[in-house]
Write a protein that binds this DNA or RNA. Structure first.
Lengths: 362, 362
DNA sequence: CTGTTAGCGCGTTCAG
DNA sequence: CTGAACGCGCTAACAG
């Protein structure tokens, strides 16, 4: 029976128990200012005996620092963001800072609400993978900045926002992957995942405009796809790009549609994990064999990709590094050491396995 | 140029701007007590004009309620916990409460540190998937309780701790899965994943003791495996259970070892996602075909399991429900509506696909 | 209905 | 080196 009390002891109680003034106790327990050897020990002993634990809330109130940073991502259950968040919180923990994570599920209204919550909680900084498409829809981010809270973007830069951003080389990665496909001899390469529009853009120009007005990652990857086509002097065929809802189910629908074309794709470039599984469902439904009848390259490597039949060639994103880098940039800003806003681009890794082969003869 | 100030306006400033007393402003902005129609509007207008936003820290200090709950899991990047956390934060958000997530990576020391942080931040409640094996190593959880912070366990109950816990029917699920394998005619069923001991337990009794002294989930699943064997009147063979590090790599090593036995398993029961991929690596390395040469059932369904060749039969865990339920139980405790500690068991779902077949003839 | 007053627990001058 | 006194921004009794 330790008969603990349900209300935690305050620093004053510790001081009383130790027979010293409040501020002497505060100084030793807070680790600042001068305290004599003897009193310090008495305070420590009393604190230990009473089970004293500083009230972080009260401390934050008077210091104005919460030792907490906020992270806003689309979906914490997505392994990609899981990795990013882990990277951030690892870096934060190393600095003695906690991490508050909020999910928005790609909803801008939720993102705004999340930002307000973080502002209200007086976090020391914010890392956000924003769903905002441009500066005009990023007022909430501007507001955080105006209130003196440093913000860094991760995974997705927002065009027009003069802010630090940590992203990967989406465009180059996509271009490289599609080029590999082209080099293997493919002339018909399907692009799987977004943009989320109803009408299929028929002209190259429309598609580029669309890319520019879309989520950073999607747009960049689409541009990379077009780059590769350009490099090879090939025309773009609207029928080979997926449009509509970005879900596994719809990816399947779109790939099945492509397979039914008169001149179906002989290779697929999938820009998301769910795009890969959706495409695989379509291939299975149509009895098309990966690596033999069709080639495939996906984004977001996962352990299962290596045990597929055949093992899938994938582009791996440095999720942890994305997070730790974002945290570093944020800490620099918090410490007032940051200069002009910068775009930090991390490299992806092309993992070659067995899902790419020359197109079937004929 | 909106020329925002970097220090946010306080409620007193709003009151001054509106020409009313602080508490009138506080009452309208805080949404409590009576305020006249006209003054209320003046306050609202002033607050809006100044861009007032309540300081949640200060509010928490005086109310003693932080409107925040803490969640401690092993690894936020693990899709399983990702789902649980999402379930919790969805339920929390619906209640206007925020969620603080901390990862421990299965390290008890980290878990204790995380608990202390949450106590210091005065969260209103804690949900934890604890790595503690018994009440003796769960002192930190007791301490939170002693300080009046409700705690509910999720995914893993801790034997000896008189606390609400929300878990799945691990033992039944394992027993059911292994029974299916046995019913299909298999006599040699390998158990893949844990316990993490050096020496392979030779007797059934030792294994049961081990199960009892291990992580809740692991132990229960192992018991279920033994149950199924008992039901079928079959003897347990120590060579068919994996021991050692719980990693994908080691699972591969252990499965390869099993395949090299004089009498290798004709079926595998994998109790984790990484156990499945590890096992698949081993099968690939040995040229053993799933569904033909060997049957397999895994835990933790994921979208990729459905597109494997053949599609994998899996046990799906209700991750979101686990989270929402844990949150509900926690809220009940916070509201003082909870009775005696209870073990809430959620059902898993057996998803039959094509990785189970009769053992090969011969 | 409204304004005044007193804390919440801690950090931080500022005399002693 | 120590302790008293004030303030952070807000809620909550309390009179008016």
């Amino acid at each position: 029976m330790t008969s603990e009390r349900s209300v935690p002891p305050t620093i004053s109680e510790v001081a009383a128990a130790a027979g010293v003034g409040r501020s002497t106790a505060a100084r030793t327990l807070g680790g600042y200012g001068y305290v004599g050897q003897e009193l310090r020990e008495r305070v420590l002993e009393a604190a230990d005996r009473l089970g004293y634990r500083a009230n972080a809330l009260a401390r934050s109130m008077s210091t104005g620092v919460s030792q907490t940073l906020g992270v806003i991502v689309a979906d914490i259950a997505n392994p990609f963001f899981g990795g990013v968040v882990r990277g951030i919180s690892d870096a934060a923990k190393a600095r003695g800072v906690e991490t508050l994570v909020l999910s928005t599920y790609e909803d801008l209204a939720e993102e705004i609400a999340a930002t307000n919550v973080l502002i209200d909680k007086r976090v020391d900084g914010i890392v956000v993978a924003s769903a905002a498409l441009d500066a005009a829809s990023a007022g909430h981010i501007q507001e955080a900045r105006d209130r003196g809270i440093p913000v860094v973007l991760v995974d997705r830069a927002v065009t027009g926002l003069h802010l630090d951003a940590v992203v990967i080389d989406n465009r180059d990665a996509a271009r490289g992957a599609v080029t590999r496909l082209l080099d293997a001899g493919h002339r018909r390469v399907g692009f799987v995942w977004g943009p989320p529009v109803e009408e299929r853009p028929r002209r190259r120009r429309e598609l580029i405009d669309l890319a520019a007005r879309n989520l950073w990652t999607d747009g960049e990857r689409l541009q990379g796809y077009l780059d590769a086509l350009d490099d090879a002097g090939m025309a773009f065929d609207a029928d080979l790009v997926m449009v509509g809802a970005k879900t596994e189910e719809h990816a399947q629908v779109e790939v099945e549609r492509m397979l039914d074309l008169e001149s179906p794709p002989t290779a697929l470039f999938c820009t998301e994990n769910d795009a890969v599984t959706g495409a695989l469902r379509a291939l299975r439904a149509r009895g098309v064999r990966v690596g033999a009848d069709i080639s495939l390259i996906g984004f977001d490597d996962s352990s299962w990709a290596a045990v597929m039949e055949p093992p899938l060639t994938m582009i791996e994103q440095p999720t942890l590094a994305l997070g730790t880098r974002a945290a570093e940039v944020l800490f620099a800003a918090i410490d007032g050491e940051s200069g002009a806003a910068e775009l930090h681009t991390l490299k992806t890794r092309y993992i070659e396995r067995s899902s790419v082969a020359p197109p079937p003869a004929g």
